[in-house]
Every structure is written in structure tokens, then in C-alpha cells.
Design a protein around this nucleic acid. Structure first.
Lengths: 232, 232
DNA sequence: CGCAGCCTTGACAAATGTCAACAAACGTGG
DNA sequence: CCACGTTTGTTGACATTTGTCAAGGCTGCG
């Protein structure tokens, strides 16, 4: 793969501690590929032959059962996804598809496992990344089991606004039907949930959301570090 | 701690590859403690000072928010719990309490992290264990988002019966109210769910469950490896 | 301009939660 | 060993939440 991508990939915590030599060796066996939107990259149940890294665009992880489908997570640059299956040399538990036009790096899983055994620092980084992902899903599970859909939406909006910066309004990062699935509800229910948050200062204009009174919304949503803080 | 416990603890995959010397050193800094039932061992939000191992008894992991509480998992011997917080040197995301009288090993988190950096095989084992836990929570999340409560119960019963062996009946491993919380429903709803499974050959007698026609129940529950197989 | 897909809304149905009452099981102390 | 009180499980009636179906409006794109 072209060396021009190296700096971007190096920004990942996962690779930060590698020597240039080892990093270059890992990249030599890897591919960079571009994909149009709405392409299925991974199908759940397939063996995990590659560790995937998203350089640009957006990827959705989703899962299916018995004719139903649900959004599990959205992945944005620059990060890896489905690390656990790569490490365990197991089958993917989730499918993945591009949301937008995206550029991905594919690293053969065997190379990742080899490097893990050779490089102590890399092993440490893998574990940290894995622990991070693990804790994120625990938070997500707490969110699902302890909150109603209205509360989940309220807290989601608070998190998004915090990410957007200091402005009181922001753009939803994907279409509402995806958001609904991500939050564990139907699109119709999401529509009504937005209206239900109107009394707490949530103003909706298409995919643009404004939170006019953060304190008011927080009083309802009761965000907490052990569920909503994705950095720890 | 007494050396008499060493063989039991050594049965854990996590420690299987350690030299006797390193293992003994790790154990030297650790404690064994006995606890009565219904004792809170860990409170969510606390710093993760110890890696916990359960030698006998049973432990429940649970989480709270805004006055509500939910069961996240049940841990049985011999296994570790809350490994991710130990590795990340972070705060616990879940609380833990004994369900029965239990014996636990507490290993200082710092010792685990040190050993991780020293011993390649141990690092590999930690990663495998972590990846396993991660994948289990993904499965659990798919279970929650893709299935109704009746389907979750049906699949849970099928899993339990498979674990119990060849007999068509088995004992629920904990009280029904816990099971309800674990499955993400109320005790009342669970009661009705059991009755709802009667047409598929589920016979309930107190905490004893019999599945009279596995094929019939499977036709309804539609168990699948990517959700219900906890070994991969 | 017209089609296709997404979002919204209303009416309705199903699933799930809540509250209250009561029965059954359990543990404790007499 | 029994009596008592506490806890758990069950059931019914009802409220709330959430999902389903159908229709219509809006938007973006060919």
C-alpha cells in the first residue's frame, strides 16, 4: 500500500508505539480500498480474515436475526473495528456496511496476531483498545436496560452536542431511521420521541437539532459518567 | 495466601501458561476471602484496585441508574470478573454482589498490569479472555435488541438445558426475579412469559424447568450460534 | 417533472410495566 | 418442631410504552 497513508494510520493509539520498521512491515501486507456508500464490507458469521481500519467516511455495524436487523454502532475515522474477532481468530458477530463513500485499510488478521506476539508495546495497545471497546458496549447495554427510549434519545442528544463543541445546535450524523435503530426503537417512535423532548428545549429542523436549554434537558436526561462518558 | 488454592486457580486459562515462579509471585500479593450471601463486593464508580476471581459460590454483576437497577451477568467458578477496568486502571462500570456464600481471590490490579508487561504468554491470555468477554456482551446486546422477551426466555431455557446435560429438565440457577432482571423484564412479565411458552412444551415447577419437546421450542426460539453459543 | 425514499402523523394493536392482592416458600427464633 | 414474619412468585386489572400499518407530505435526484 502507498506510504502516503502511513501518517494517518500512525495517529491510531494502536500503532503509535511501533517502530517504523515493524509498522512498515505490517503495512506491506495490507491493502487500502475505496468503497461507495451502502456496500456490505463484512457479513456476520464470516471468518475474521482482516482487521479493518476506517480512514475516511463512515461505517455502520449491524446485526440480524430472524429477519430483523438492528444498528449496533457507527464507526468514524480514524479507528479500527471488529478487533475481537481478529484476535480470537473467530467469526464476525456483526456485519458492516459503508454509510458514506469510505476508505479502508485491511490488515491480514494473522499479521496482527504475529505482531502481537513479537511486540510488547503493541500487545499493550491492543489490550487497551479492546478493553475500551468492551467498556463501551457495557455502557451501551446499561443505556438499553436502564433507560426508556425517551431517556436514551435525550442523553444521545446531549452527547452529540458536547461533541459538536460550544454551539447549541448540531447536525445528526446519520439519517433518523438509523438513529432509531441505533437507539433501539422504530422510526415512528423516534419521531414521537423528538416531539416528547420539545418541552425540555429540543428543537428539531430536519437533521439539525438545537438544545435551547441544556440544564433543562439534563434535568430530564440525567446523564452520568458511567454510561455517557465514552472517553473513560 | 495458602498454597492449597493454587491448583484451582491454575485451572483458569488466564494463568495456565505462567511459570510456577511467576504464578507464585502473583499469588503472594493476593488474598483469599470468604463472603456470605448478598454482600456487595464492588460498587460501580470505584477505582479498580483488584482483579477478582471467583473460586466457589456465585456473583452477580449489576448496574444502577436513577433509582433503577438491572442484572448484567452472573459469574460462576472458576472465572475472573471485571478484567477490563483492571487493565485500563479505570473505574468499575458495574457493581458486584455475592448471590451465595462465595470464596474469592483478589489480585492487586497493579500486579496484573506488571505481569502483563513482563510475560508474553500472560499478555496473550489476557487478550483472549478480554476478547471473549467483549464478544459475550455483543451477543447479549443482540439478544436484547433483536428479540422479544418471550424469545429471550425461550433461548435462555434452551441454553440452560444444553448446559445441564442430557436430561430434559434442570434447575434455574437463581431466583426468578434475578432471571427477569437479567433478561430485561419485570418479574410479573417473566411469570407470564413462562405461561406463554407452555404451548411449546415448557413445564414449570417452582425453579425446576422441563422442556418436553426441544424441537418444538427451538422452532419458536430459533437459537443461533452468533447469539447463543457462548463458547466461540 | 416525476419517481423513490425518508419522515411524519394518525389510528390501532401488541408488548411491557405498574399496582394491588394473595398464595406459597423460606428462614428465624421461640 | 412449630409459629411467625418476610420474601418471592403469581395473578388480575389497568396504564404506559412501544410497535404496526397505512396514508400523505417533503425532499432530492435523475
Amino acid at each position: 500500500m502507498p506510504e502516503s497513508y502511513y501518517p494517518d494510520i500512525k495517529t491510531l493509539d494502536l500503532f503509535a508505539g511501533l517502530t517504523d520498521e515493524r509498522f512498515a512491515q505490517l503495512m506491506r501486507g495490507s491493502y487500502v480500498q475505496n468503497f461507495p456508500p451502502h456496500v456490505e464490507l463484512i457479513t456476520e458469521g464470516d471468518p475474521a480474515n482482516f482487521l479493518h481500519i476506517i480512514l475516511s467516511g463512515a461505517v455502520e455495524l449491524f446485526a440480524s436475526w430472524n429477519g430483523r436487523e438492528t444498528s449496533m454502532a457507527a464507526i468514524r475515522p480514524i479507528s479500527t473495528f471488529i478487533l475481537a474477532a481478529t484476535i480470537k481468530d473467530a467469526r464476525y458477530l456483526m456485519s458492516a456496511r459503508t454509510l458514506d463513500k469510505s476508505r479502508l485499510v485491511l490488515i491480514p488478521s494473522q499479521d496482527v496476531r504475529n505482531l502481537f506476539d513479537e511486540d510488547q508495546g503493541f500487545a499493550r495497545a491492543i489490550v487497551t483498545e479492546l478493553a475500551q471497546c468492551y467498556r463501551s458496549t457495557i455502557k451501551s447495554q446499561k443505556d438499553l436496560k436502564l433507560r426508556t427510549s425517551l431517556e436514551r434519545l435525550a442523553n444521545y442528544l446531549l452527547r452529540q452536542q458536547a461533541r459538536a463543541g460550544t454551539t447549541p445546535d448540531f447536525e445528526l450524523p446519520f439519517e433518523k431511521r438509523k438513529l432509531a435503530s441505533f437507539l433501539g426503537m422504530t422510526p415512528e417512535n423516534l419521531s414521537r420521541a423528538f416531539k416528547g423532548l420539545k418541552p425540555y428545549g429540543v428543537v428539531v429542523d430536519g437533521s439539525r437539532i438545537a438544545i435551547t436549554d441544556r440544564a433543562e434537558l439534563e434535568a430530564f436526561a440525567r446523564p452520568c459518567a458511567l454510561i455517557d462518558d465514552y472517553s473513560t
